[in-house]
Amino acid sequence: MLDITIVANRLFRYRKNSVLPGFRLTLGFTLFYLGLIVLIPLGAVFWKTSTLTWSQFWQTISMPTAMASYRLTFGASFLAALVNAFFGLIVAWVLVRYEFFGKKIIDSLVDLPFALPTAVAGITLASLYAQNGWIGQLLAPLGIKVANTQIGVFIALTFIGLPFIVRTVQPILEDLDPELEEAAASLGANRWQVFWRVILPMLTPALLTGFALAFARALGEYGSVIFIAGNIPMKTQITPVIIMGELDMFDYGKATAIAVVMLVVSFLLLLGINVLQWWTNRYNTTNLA
């Protein structure tokens, strides 16, 4: 009997007792707001897709040009987020741990990709990396072409993703108690061990969040990529361009079908990252406690 009530309590306890009042009201607002801003538009995408039959749906999402675009979009976004995770961590580290002249300026530079209209970013990158551009002409003799290749897509996505990593890691790094590192050192850990065993585990959840944000941002990016990609089918065409093409031919059903693929895959990937993050976080807090 007792067991059953405990189980029931666990199962149905949809809220933890909190000292703060207003749970129902704020949850209501949250659901209403999310519904209005996120769920209704996304629901409309699924609704429009349902005008297709299953075979039409499958045919659309498995077109060779679409398949090639998924590979490019997800691949380049993943790589760009990965590179940003590495270099973004270094940038955050430098900004938090050292004092130097011009730090404030560098700190605000990090946000620039946020603020810049993506089309401006795209045109700027495209002209820099074009074969006669400032950077492109240095790379051309080495046989490296950036503009109008997949590398161009990757560079644009890296550019727009940087702030996400820096801005999520920075506050955690600031809160990190240097005494922990000193303690580790006094217990005989070398610098590498301190970083690898003490600092990195504490940063991992924030890094994962930043990675997820940068990755998600890159998946949906359109404006900056189309200027530098060249948009050649099967080679440098990202999925959003395919969606635009369908819209331009008034195939709304097909456009939303491909959008649904993007949505579902992105959602699953982000969910996976969130689970991973939750798991590392739990590991962290139990260890520290």
């Binding site: 002209s127 074009a130 074969q131 006669n132 109008n148 189309i226 060249g230 948009n231 050649i232 089918p233």
Partner: peptide, 21 residues
């Protein structure tokens, strides 16, 4: 032989005339 497929006529004009592609 097409290196860039822009989305519209003006975009292609800029690619050809300004970006020298």
């Amino acid at each position: 032989n097409v290196p860039v497929l822009d989305s519209g006529a003006r975009g292609s004009t800029v690619t050809f005339a300004q970006r020298q592609i």
